[in-house]
């Protein structure tokens, strides 16, 4: 388990990194936390000719609260975000999901942006970004652009980022006060990729649901936004029966794969169970906040 030979660059600035990517295109891979890339390389499943290690790039490690949004720099470690008070206050859904990303040792190295760029179909952070309608800021030879979560995830391990672009920042919209949230997932063991996971955001007004956001992971090639369930919930008064209907809507909307750990049918079923439970927890939080 030793990687094939590769050329290694450690740029000091985003511009240098982008130049290197522009030069090497899809022959190059960006190394941030390395928690997915390095194992893939050691197993020789990935054989990038060039590694652009951005760990020495200055100014990419930050968590900043802007109005209504939390900006997280590309080199911010998952563990730092997990322990950040800003994240806890403004985006508790992200904090709760982070706690289930791998293990502490992984989160100490792994970055928030790296997990999103890797786009594992069972990752937590991709679904959080999707649930919150977050964005990433990408820098490439043509300059900077902002990509919405809904436009970012293409398929397994694939984003709409150009090979010559890097993510410089991830933006998570903050939850307005009084909003309920819940992250729930089923994994075979603590720290494993989720067999299914769900992030829920819930807001109430006048006794009815004014906003419901549901995003799932592990049930398809990309994170899935359960729009039909969201529509079904909006404008209705919360009830166990409504949660059950939402669960059924989610089951109808997802098309998971089966593997050695769980059948497709199981994943579909527990996706619904998790939605039901997450809605329940989110509602409790709404009520606690009130």
């Amino acid at each position: 388990m030793k990687p094939a030979a590769f050329e290694y660059f450690a740029p000091r600035t985003v511009e240098q990194a982008v130049d290197l990517l522009a030069q090497h295109g899809d022959q190059a891979k960006v190394l941030a936390g390395g928690q997915s890339l390095v194992p893939l390389m050691n197993m020789r499943l990935a054989r990038p000719a060039v590694i652009v290690d951005i760990n020495r790039v200055d100014g990419l490690e930050y968590i900043v609260a802007a109005p209504a949004v939390l900006r997280i720099g590309a080199l911010t470690r998952q563990r730092a975000a997990e322990r950040s008070r800003l994240v806890a206050e403004r985006c508790p859904l992200l904090r709760d999901a982070l706690r289930l990303v791998g293990h502490v040792q992984i989160r100490n190295r792994g970055t928030v942006a790296g997990s999103i760029a890797h786009a594992d179909p069972a990752a937590e952070l991709t679904a959080v970004l999707t649930a919150l309608d977050g964005e990433v800021v990408a820098r490439g030879p043509g300059g900077t652009r902002v990509i919405a979560a809904s436009d970012l995830f293409v398929t397994y391990l694939t984003t709409s980022l150009d090979p010559r672009e890097i993510i410089t920042e991830v933006r998570f919209p903050a939850l307005p006060p009084g909003t309920g949230w819940s992250w729930m997932e089923i994994a075979r063991r603590h720290g494993d990729f989720a067999l299914a996971g769900v992030g829920v955001v819930l807001a109430l007004g006048g006794g009815v649901i004014t906003e419901a956001r549901i995003a799932l992971t592990g049930v398809g090639p990309t994170p899935v936004r359960a729009t039909s369930a969201e529509r079904l919930l909006t404008g209705r008064a919360p009830s166990e029966g409504l949660w059950a209907d939402a669960a059924e809507a989610v089951r109808a909307a997802v098309d998971p794969d089966g593997d050695i750990h769980a059948s497709a049918e199981y994943r579909r079923h527990v996706a619904g169970v998790l939605v039901q439970r997450a809605l329940c927890e989110a509602l409790t939080r709404v009520r606690e906040a009130a």
Binding site: L45, P121, A122, Y156, D257, D259
Partner: peptide
């Protein structure tokens, strides 16, 4: 071989894709 042994989580889905 290698890809079957370590990639089973996504192999079916990717094949179909």
């Amino acid at each position: 071989g290698l890809i079957a042994g370590v990639g089973q989580r996504m192999l079916g889905g990717v094949g179909k894709m």
